[in-house]
Simulated assay, not measured.
Amino acid sequence: MKFDIDAFNKKRAAAFNQHKTILKKLSKGQALFCEHCKQPLQLDLNQTDKHQGLVSCGKGCTHIELELG
């Protein structure tokens, strides 16, 4: 089994850019919806750990943990 590192890096970069776009839009107050369940995404910066944030939908299909500062 051969592992294609270039394909992996491209997929990872695409996911990073998608997450970055989601964060920009949510921080501007724009409404975004989960691709799977179509519920609104929430940006929560009030986690117990002050250096962590969370983007998620109500059902938990989307779950993006953020490392802050």
Rank of each mutant, 00 (worst) to 15 (best):
S27Q: 06
S27W: 09
S27P: 02
S27A: 08
S27M: 05
S27L: 08
K28M: 04
K28W: 14
G29F: 09
G29L: 06
G29Y: 09
Q30W: 03
A31D: 04
A31S: 07
A31W: 01
A31I: 03
A31L: 03
L32E: 02
F33N: 13
F33H: 13
F33L: 12
F33Y: 15
C34E: 14
C34Y: 06
C34M: 15
C34G: 08
C34K: 02
E35I: 09
E35Q: 08
H36N: 15
H36A: 15
H36C: 12
C37R: 10
C37V: 01
C37A: 11
C37M: 12
K38T: 08
K38R: 13
Q39L: 07
P40D: 08
P40H: 03
P40N: 07
L41V: 14
L41T: 12
Q42N: 12
L43W: 01
L43R: 04
L43D: 02
L43E: 02
D44E: 15
D44Y: 07
D44S: 08
D44T: 14
D44M: 08
D44C: 07
D44G: 05
L45A: 14
N46S: 12
N46G: 01
Q47D: 02
Q47K: 13
T48C: 10
T48R: 13
D49N: 15
D49H: 12
D49P: 11
D49F: 04
H51K: 05
Q52A: 14
Q52Y: 05
Q52D: 10
L54Y: 04
L54C: 08
V55E: 06
V55L: 04
S56Q: 06
S56M: 10
C57R: 00
C57A: 04
G58K: 05
G58F: 01
G58R: 03
G58S: 04
K59P: 02
K59I: 00
K59Q: 04
G60M: 02
G60L: 00
G60W: 00
G60N: 03
C61V: 01
C61Y: 02
T62K: 08
T62I: 01
T62S: 03
T62C: 11
